[in-house]
């Protein structure tokens, strides 16, 4: 049985290491914070200007001056620091953040990422994604294996405008875990009951190895 959103988030949490500073993207990546191992010391960075992001507030704790990069109300922790946008992206661009987990529209077999626009149709913007993929030490993508039309989102070459070129290290989909390696994507792990044959049939990108 392929993974659902929560399974994918739980699998992505295995990418965390004790002591990591981590930036989580909007959508499924946000769910990863629900699966942080209890004995791990993880600090979440929010690119609007906060290090040490706490959980959502109770109704009484809501503070309009305290939001995350998804514009959701959040809380602070004892360790929290606040800073301006240029400082926030200095720590991102400067390679001080260990890991970023992001969503995607398309990923190519060479690690290109597209997740910010569909020409003529969807014009939202890249937000901080281009800076994250250019500067963070390791980039892990969580996304569905196929789009709504059933077409592979793991491609030989991205068709949409790129967010970054050769920036993705690992992809977690509902079917499994894939690493960007020389020559294509390597299967690291399969979701329960998913076969290599199913992955090959549902993936446009080159799958390397057995």
């Amino acid at each position: 049985m392929p993974w659902d959103r929560n399974d994918m988030a739980a699998r992505a949490a295995q990418e965390l290491e004790d002591g990591f500073y981590v930036n989580l993207g909007i959508g499924i990546p946000t769910l990863v914070s629900n699966y942080v191992p209890e004995d791990y010391d993880i600090t979440l960075q929010s690119e609007n200007g906060m290090l040490g992001m706490g959980p959502f507030p109770t109704e009484e704790e809501i503070d309009a001056d305290l939001i995350n990069a998804g514009k959701q109300t959040v809380t602070e922790l004892d360790r929290t620091s606040y800073f301006s946008s240029s400082q926030s992206f200095a720590m991102i661009r400067g390679g001080h953040i260990n890991l970023s987990i992001l969503g995607a529209m398309e990923v190519s077999e060479t690690g290109d990422l597209a997740n910010w626009m569909i020409p003529g149709r969807l014009v939202k913007g890249m937000g901080g994604a281009m800076d994250l993929v250019a500067g963070v030490q390791r980039i892990v993508i969580i996304m569905d294996h196929a789009n709504k039309a059933g077409e592979s989102k793991l491609l030989k070459k991205c068709s949409l405008p790129l967010t970054g070129q050769g920036v993705v290290d690992r992809i977690i989909t509902n079917l499994g875990v894939f690493d960007v390696v020389e020559g294509g994507l390597k299967v690291i792990e399969l979701a329960p009951e998913v076969t290599m044959e199913e992955v090959r049939n549902k993936t446009e990108a080159t799958i390397v190895g057995s």
Binding site: I67, G70, T73
Partner: peptide, 10 residues
């Protein structure tokens, strides 16, 4: 004004 009012149970 708050854009995404997200809370947890008290």
């Amino acid at each position: 004004r708050i854009e995404q009012r997200t809370t947890r149970a008290a």
